[in-house]
């Protein structure tokens, strides 16, 4: 695999970012050890990603030591402790889940009631305030007009309810759009699953009829789980 450049680039970037951030860490009153911890975690995560081989990967002694440790841990006292801790934490987690399970129905039931109350209360209050506003100006002039206005207002409310219904109906029509959205999402998901992605800059993108040519540069590509970097890229594709 010819992705030695990417590992060298990544290593340089890590060193530069860490060195460059030292002042920022100091300004925030964070100790140097935390900066080194950031570097260590970053390197670990890059190793786990397996996108390239890094210089720090050539130290398998750590892993060997770790693999030897379980042999030393044959002392029976430690395991029960660990196990009890583990089961304890698992129980706690389950307990939390149970709590959550209980809470969620409660919350939803509350929400439903709340929503119902909201829907039931909100509209009357709106019409009441509207009515009271109109009462001051119109009630004395013409009671019939006021009543008609009130009826109109109620009618408006009714229309708005109809609007809601129309909107609900139109949801069925919109479902085509939803399908489009869903298909778009699934496309993105497919992309994520495939994971072949290229991030770069473009100099020029040309199209002649259905033939596309692009000149790209300074890019990083992840293909088949490996990272590649390039200075220049040219691509041809037919639409």
């Amino acid at each position: 695999m010819s992705n030695t450049e990417s590992s060298r680039l990544y290593e340089t970037i890590i060193d530069e970012v860490i060195n460059d951030s030292r002042q920022d860490f100091e300004n925030s009153g964070i100790e140097e050890s935390t900066l080194q911890e950031l570097k260590r975690i970053w390197c670990e995560k890059l190793t786990q990603s397996q996108v390239a081989k890094f210089s720090w990967d050539n130290q398998p002694t750590f892993q060997q030591n770790i693999s030897h440790q379980p042999f030393d841990n044959d002392i029976k006292l430690e395991h029960p402790d660990l196990l009890s801790y583990n089961t304890g934490s698992v129980n706690n987690v389950i307990g939390d889940n149970n709590d959550l399970d209980i809470q969620i129905p409660n919350m939803t039931s509350f929400k439903q009631e709340y929503d119902d109350d909201d829907n039931g209360l909100m509209l009357p209050t709106v019409t009441q305030t509207d009515g009271s506003n109109f009462e001051i100006t119109l009630d004395n002039d013409n009671a019939k007009e006021f009543i008609n206005n009130l009826k109109k207002l109620k009618g408006v409310d009714g229309v708005s309810d109809d609007d809601n219904d129309l909107f609900n109906d139109s949801d069925d029509i919109n479902s085509e759009l939803d399908d489009d959205l869903e298909s778009g999402k699934s496309d993105d998901e497919e992309n994520d699953q495939d994971g072949h992605i290229m991030l770069c800059l473009y100099d020029k993108v040309q199209r002649i009829k259905n033939k596309w040519k692009c000149n790209l540069k300074e890019g990083v590509a992840n293909i088949n789980g490996k990272d590649y970097v390039f200075q220049k890229a040219t691509g041809e594709s037919e639409w």
């Binding site: 010819s2 060298r8 530069e16 300074e218 590509a221 970097v229 200075q231 594709s237 037919e238």
Partner: peptide, 21 residues
């Protein structure tokens, strides 16, 4: 962004691709 630039000589590879758009 700076490291990717040609003057840093860190990234020199060239890439070509061909496919169905």
């Amino acid at each position: 962004s700076d490291m990717m630039k040609p003057e840093n000589n860190l990234v020199k590879s060239k890439l070509t691709f061909k496919g169905d758009l």
